[in-house]
């Protein structure tokens, strides 16, 4: 059974050990903040990949759940004492609301074919954006508001470690989930939904479970995101948030869990780097153009993403596919 052994959890453990040590070795504050941001976005991208890569659902409204988490945390912490208890309550509230919303959104939309689902989630996310803009008594609209966070979270180092732990926890949880019998059915739904149904699985249930789990995890990342900024405004509901997750997932590798993490790192680092360059060369202020080009190149040349491509190369090296050579022989013989 050793040949089935998946090495990625080992790599994650080794690199997270290195990442725990990093802030003690390197005391650059901005680097630490950037890496924290990567952890948070990696959580978000992994939740998106559960939908896109493992269940085959293309959602353009994933920002919805990110925003729900963000606003739950922001609103509760600004209204009540910024203590650890209220922080946990606010994260829990965000998750519960996200679970309920994703359940009903899923119930309404997941029976539709993929294109209509994508369009409808886009519209629903737009709806949340409008509500956040108009409900000024709660959200202060586009201006947003700042809020105080518990002291533990104010410390950049402990926040860094908490985000790292959460990211690793989410990674292992999702790995467990996707390797369970249910996870295999999710893959089957991705591959061929009608066939899965005819095997006797009620696919709508699986899609619902997947979208609720993804929604809850996205809400967690939204909460962490505003904690790092100590500020929230309507941008958390914007389409860009979903598109970022899409880009990270596709760039890193759809259908892998390590992929979104790598994707998040690349996007975040290049974002940082391009904005730095923008100070000297004006063109780089429009860094979004470069992301667009990157996206097109990724889809054209690495449709499986970085992780998928690397895996494929290793796979081919390890064993020149027996099946393929068999087929070749047959063709020659026939």
């Amino acid at each position: 059974m050793l040949k089935h052994f998946n090495k990625s959890p080992v790599w994650v453990l080794i690199s997270s050990a290195a990442l725990i040590l990093l802030p003690f070795v390197n005391d650059s504050r901005s680097l630490m903040i950037m890496i924290t941001q990567i952890f948070i976005l990696a959580i978000f991208a992994m939740s998106y990949d559960l939908l896109l890569g493992y269940t085959g659902i293309v959602s353009f409204g994933h920002a919805m759940f990110f925003g729900i988490g963000a606003y739950s945390t922001g609103v509760l912490l600004s209204r009540f004492e910024p203590t650890m208890l209220w922080l946990l309550v606010s994260i829990a509230v965000g998750m519960v609301v996200a679970a309920i919303v994703s359940y009903f959104v899923g119930l309404l939309t997941l029976r539709l074919s993929n294109h209509f689902y994508a369009m409808l989630t886009l519209a629903l996310a737009g709806l949340f954006l409008v509500v956040a803009e108009k409900w000024r008594s709660l959200t202060l609209g586009n201006d947003g508001f700042t809020f105080r966070v518990p002291d533990v979270m104010r410390d950049r180092l402990s926040f860094y470690l908490i985000c790292l732990i959460l990211m690793v926890a989410v990674f292992f949880f999702l790995m467990r989930l996707t390797n369970s019998p249910m996870g295999k059915v999710l893959l089957a739904v991705r591959e061929n939904e009608a066939r899965t149904q005819s095997l006797g699985f009620k696919t709508i249930h699986y899609k619902l479970i997947s979208s609720v789990v993804a929604g809850v995890i996205a809400s967690l990342s939204g909460s962490l995101y505003v904690l790092s900024l100590r500020f929230v405004n309507t941008s958390v509901f914007a389409l860009d948030v979903t598109l970022d997750a899409l880009l990270m997932t596709i760039l890193g590798g759809v259908g892998t869990l390590i992929g979104p993490i790598i994707g998040a790192a690349i996007i975040e680092v290049s974002h940082h780097w391009l904005s730095e360059l923008g100070k000297s060369y004006v063109i780089f202020e429009r860094w979004i153009i470069f992301f667009g080009i990157l996206y097109i190149l990724a889809v054209m040349f690495f449709p499986k993403g970085i992780v998928g491509t690397v895996k494929e190369i290793r796979w081919k090296k390890k064993r020149p596919s027996k099946v393929e050579t068999n087929n070749k022989n047959k063709r020659i013989a026939g």
Binding site: M1, R176, S180, P181, M182, K184, H205
Partner: peptide, 12 residues
């Protein structure tokens, strides 16, 4: 075995 989501599939 439809909704078991915690145990690894290989343990079945």
């Amino acid at each position: 075995v439809r909704y078991q989501m915690i145990k690894h599939f290989r343990s079945y």
